[in-house]
Nucleic acid binder design. Structure first.
Length: 301
DNA sequence: AACCTTCTCAACCGCTACCCG
DNA sequence: ACGGGTAGCGGTTGAGAAGGT
């Protein structure tokens, strides 16, 4: 059938944005809020396609963006999240207030990849580059993506947490910052969320469904492993939390060939430990896994 | 100073998921 | 249930900056 172009290419500017264009976009969004990107350029008097406006706003003009260098903590968090989520830049960005998916993607490709390689870690698989462990496939063969069901569980849990930059991807469920405009009949990225909460029970069910889970426990200022385990033990075996506990991430826990073998065999490593909340040492899960520390713990500090 | 190479990152492109009539 | 329209995502590109010769 063929897709209609997102904009009338003949009458749109391309390339770098001028200050005037930026100002027009900022002014317009200040007045009317985000949303209805398709019609925004016309309304704002911009000779740009809506997509371009959206990108410009999200990646550059949003007032809550944190410009400047990434901190060491951000670096490590990105690495950990990437090892967990793969190239889900928008989800990763959701955990880094003030950072955009594009920014993180660029930063990953230009800095972190190199950093990991210099550490001897394959940036795609998060395995040691020269690991030749029996039973563990070569680094380049398998991306660190999780099974779809697990990804969606994680996405849902991530999405349920508000984050500072107010940027929510399609799957994100948390309400955004209140839009500035009063009314908008378009489906908006900023205004839908409230509606979304009403209209999208499917997503909510996915996230809740009797299995409320909160990855913040693991990623941010994580509670002790014990606490997480206690919480996990209080829910039924088939809840999302317990599923997360079961997610096999041998990729994350391969510091040595021996540990790699142990991890691959056990294939069940405590998430909180993988995500770096091990300040107090190994948790019970990891201990039962033959001492397969997440190697980030050793590298990160 | 001029040229070349490498690096960075903003912007674009194409695809997919989702919404709505 | 279906199809069109739109927003959002991830991969890629290319212009400009920075560094090297």
């Amino acid at each position: 059938m063929g897709r209609s172009p997102c904009c009338e290419k003949a009458h749109t500017n391309k390339g770098a944005w001028t200050k005037e264009e930026d100002q027009r976009l900022i002014d317009y969004i200040r007045l009317h809020g985000e949303g209805c990107w398709r019609s925004l350029p016309k309304s704002a008097g911009l000779l740009r396609c809506g997509k371009s406006c959206r990108l410009r706003w999200i990646n550059y003009l949003r007032p809550d963006l944190k410009r400047g260098n990434f901190t060491e903590e951000e670096d490590e968090l990105i690495i950990k999240l990437h090892s967990l989520l793969g190239n889900k830049w928008s989800l990763i960005a959701g955990r880094l207030p003030g950072r955009t998916d594009n920014e993180i993607k660029n930063y990953w490709n230009t800095h972190i990849k190199r950093k990991l390689v210099s550490r001897g870690i394959d940036p795609q698989t998060h395995r040691p580059l020269n690991s030749a462990v029996p039973g563990v496939p070569p680094a380049a063969t398998s991306p660190p993506s999780l099974p779809v069901t697990e990804i969606s569980l994680i996405s849902s849990s991530l999405d349920r947490r508000p984050h500072g930059n107010g940027y929510y991807g399609r799957e994100k469920l948390e309400p955004k910052a209140e839009p500035l405009r009063e009314d908008n009949h378009c489906t908006t990225s900023s205004g839908t969320t409230t509606d979304e909460e009403l209209k999208a029970p499917r997503n909510r069910q996915q996230a809740q469904g009797g299995s409320e889970l909160n990855l913040e426990l693991s990623i941010g200022l994580a509670p002790s492993c014990r606490e997480l385990n206690r919480n996990a033990s209080s829910v039924t075996a088939n809840t999302a939390e317990s599923k997360l506990q079961e997610v096999p991430y041998p990729l994350l826990t391969v510091p040595t060939p021996a540990a790699a073998a142990a991890a691959a065999a056990a294939a069940a490593v405590c998430l909180c430990c993988q995500l770096g909340s091990r300040s107090g040492g190994m948790c019970g899960n990891c201990q039962s896994n033959g001492g397969s520390f997440g190697y980030y713990a050793q590298l990160g500090s």
